[in-house]
Write a protein that binds this DNA or RNA. Structure first.
Lengths: 261, 261
DNA sequence: TAGTGGTCTAGACCACGGT
DNA sequence: CCGTGGTCTAGACCACTAA
């Protein structure tokens, strides 16, 4: 720690002292002098080195935290953030072939990558669809829908939360309305019910997490989330499911194929 | 402003005062009591109302800023962030039909939505491909590539930055290597050169912006960026372009089609 | 127990925006 | 000019971690 090539603050610079300190540390991180998992010098050391008050040092560290570059651990120190293993979500992940083995998409996919998938809360209710969901499902506002809420984990770490909405007219009273939807998951059930899946559309957004999302996904500061809204259509063109998914953006890369026509 | 239903701090709560203040204000924003563009009470008012020191109030506001909920304007006040108009990027946006009118993809798309597109820096160079680009283009490390860097604006506001890489073997000496690549853009030129485009793959990431990105896209704090890496393949399966794009996540929704096979 | 970060105070001076 | 947010100081006490 004491050997880090820390520069000094330029008192003639227009740039605020805390920004200069943040710049120095950011450079060390981006150059790899400070590696993921390494400890950043303590606030006390930084105060001494730069000759500034504690709040100035803390402001510099706050900048780096909101950039997602470091995480603070109370009582331990501030560390360069470690990047989790990235999960690639390919655009063919809902293709029928992947369901053949009697496993839901998430389970099959994660097991294939050598990790342990778990699903930790499955809550199934019947509710009135809100305006957005009703529109996506082509239903009247306030129509009844089966709602499946769950959280997926990989090796015990939260990976994504998902909420599925299906028309009650289709799903009520079937295995889809039970927590354990059986082998192959709800898509297998839909096909058994005669709703052969033809295509999916997926909308991708990104934003900073809400507080509950940061908690549910154990997100450090400075890490945005992907927000996906997927709609499944059967071969008649009818929308049969809307799935609303939130996942950490630093553990995921989405991959799509675009047609050239 | 003075009529806002601000609560008081619960001194017995475990939750820090600045978090309670942030919670109160967040609730007002999420309930719509404070609308986008509205001014949040000034630091002085908040200090007075909650009976805390200025730094405590500022910490609360800092929380909301890094959540992307408010923006501070020096000398004016703190305002609930206004959401820009959202641009939808559909997965067929590179389909041949959309190029027919002799316009590059971005120009055609933005004009269709009734806004004014501009491209403000086109810098074209020939460089050595870095390892990642070389791999994506199926080239030897260090192979020569034509690099096109530009920034796109909608109604004068920066929308995205993009850097395209094409094998020099294909593009050197052609209109692709000139700032103005001519009607229909570089994809039209590639097809004239016999590289008929068959498909594209797109990788989607999201993260907090680097400093230059925040500057180039005029991003307020708390707004992540989409980082897209698109590869274009010709009908022989050869990758002919890699395009690296960064865009504000709050002005964009990406939309894709997924096959059910 | 020593060292770390988390919270909070009560000031100070400055730069910016609009009157 | 006044009110706004931006920067900075020099303390204080607390809670957590690890030895």
């Amino acid at each position: 720690m004491p050997d880090l090539p820390l520069e000094r603050i330029d008192p003639d610079s227009d740039r605020a002292a805390f920004r200069q300190i943040a710049d120095h540390l950011r450079t060390l991180i981006q150059r790899g002098t400070l590696q993921p998992g390494d400890r950043v010098p303590s606030e006390a050391r930084l105060m001494e080195h730069y000759g500034v008050a504690r709040m100035t040092v803390r402001q510099a560290l706050q900048v780096l935290r909101s950039e997602g570059l470091v995480v603070a651990e109370h009582g331990r120190g501030v560390f360069v953030r470690e990047r989790p293993r990235v999960r690639r979500l390919a655009s063919d992940r809902f293709a029928r072939g992947h369901r053949a083995r009697g496993k839901a998409t998430f389970i099959a996919e994660v097991e294939e990558s050598g990790s342990k998938p778990t699903v930790d809360t499955v809550e199934v209710t019947e509710e009135e669809a809100d305006a957005d969901v009703a529109e996506r499902l082509g239903l009247q506002a306030g129509a009844r829908v089966i709602v499946r809420r769950r959280r997926y984990l990989i090796d015990g770490r939260p990976a994504e939360t998902a909420v599925s909405y299906l028309p009650a007219q289709i799903a009520a009273g079937t295995a889809i309305a039970r927590p354990d939807s059986g082998p192959g998951g709800i898509y297998a059930r839909l096909e058994e019910l005669g709703h052969h899946l033809a295509r999916f559309t997926e909308e991708v957004r990104s934003r900073m997490p809400l507080q509950e999302e940061a908690r549910a996904l154990r997100l450090p500061a400075g890490v945005p989330v992907f927000h996906l809204i997927r709609t499944a259509y059967d071969t008649t063109g009818r929308p049969v499911e809307v799935c609303d998914t939130v996942m950490s953006s630093d553990a995921h890369v989405l991959q799509y194929e675009l047609p050239a026509q």
